[in-house]
Design a protein around this nucleic acid. Structure first.
Lengths: 170, 170
DNA sequence: AAGGAAAATGAAATTCATTTTCAAAATAAA
DNA sequence: TTTATTTTGAAAATGAATTTCATTTTCCTT
């Protein structure tokens, strides 16, 4: 039985977390371990709320606040990054990613697809330079209908619900 | 004395607003007129809060709620569009714009510069197609330091303050 | 192991931009 | 004018994000 690449990466990242905690005089706890594990196992683009719910099903007694704070902690330590799409919810994605990437977001089913394109990167840099700009980061999101939803966008997706919700109380 | 192109456009848009209101059985009011005029005169990318303050200096007794609702109304009628950048504030921009454009945002002084690039548009569409995606809209933002701020980023900008504020209570 | 200082936890409270409510005022049609 | 409908705006509500604080846990030092 071979260890998968992914689980290798997870344990590597968890090791990194442990070291960073020690280095900063912070403590390793059961909660942090559970939260980091669940988070790193996922495909990313998850909200603190959803991660909290996901964890709640398996491990009792881990509060929302702790999930939230752990995701913030991981972000501080460079193991995660925050992203906000059009529904205005803060989502977290494990880092480091293989590479810089942008997102295709289906406005029907909410699926978030990553893509990377060097031509795009270069073009962005070129434009930035033309304006005498020094680029720190950029954000590129394409919203539309994914392959599956293109021809049958009947159901109301979770993404649309979130967006509607966000719209209703923002 | 010639009428400037811009003021011509403003009065044209105000005419359009008036017609849309009548068409929908809504009413023309002093407040709507003042708010629309101030908004259309501006360079865009303004928050409801800031437009409210700007108006407050000249015209007494127009409430924040009315400014907010008028911007929403203009958005509904296709005369404005909402944009949310990294500071998480909702900004409004007059529509229709000359063309689709993206944004360069200075993370020091907060200046928002628009740019348009056809190569970028085509590349985005190409990428979208590769994934079988049907594009509805896209969003491209480059964050960094503008020409002016590149070499002397000493002061704390309003943009940074907003972002810090946003971070502190979001 | 035991003690103790520091950090973590989590329920509850707070924050704040945004959005809604509702009573009073304004508009426009008859 | 009269009246029905819409608008206004102060105040209240909303809700995701964040902080507070009393209690619990970690982990370093004896």
């Amino acid at each position: 039985m071979y260890k998968s690449v992914k689980s290798f990466k997870i344990s590597e990242k968890k090791e990194r977390l442990k070291n960073s905690l020690k280095e900063k005089g912070l403590k390793s706890t059961r909660q942090r371990d559970v939260i980091a594990t669940e988070f790193l196992r996922g495909t990313g683009h998850i909200t603190a709320e959803d991660l909290y719910k996901k964890i709640g099903r398996k491990h009792k007694g881990i509060g929302f606040t702790t999930v939230y704070r752990t995701l913030k902690l991981l972000t501080t330590l460079g193991l995660a990054t925050e992203r906000v799409f059009a529904d205005n919810l803060t989502r977290y994605e494990p880092l480091p990613a293989e590479d810089h990437h942008d997102h295709l977001i289906c406005i029907n089913c909410g699926t978030i697809t990553e893509f990377e394109n060097m031509k795009m990167e270069r073009l962005q840099e070129k434009i930035s330079n033309e304006f005498g700009f020094y680029t720190v980061i950029h954000k590129m999101e394409i919203y539309g209908y994914c392959k599956k939803c293109k021809y049958h966008s009947t159901e109301v997706s979770e993404y649309e619900l979130n967006k509607a919700k966000a719209k209703n109380k923002k």
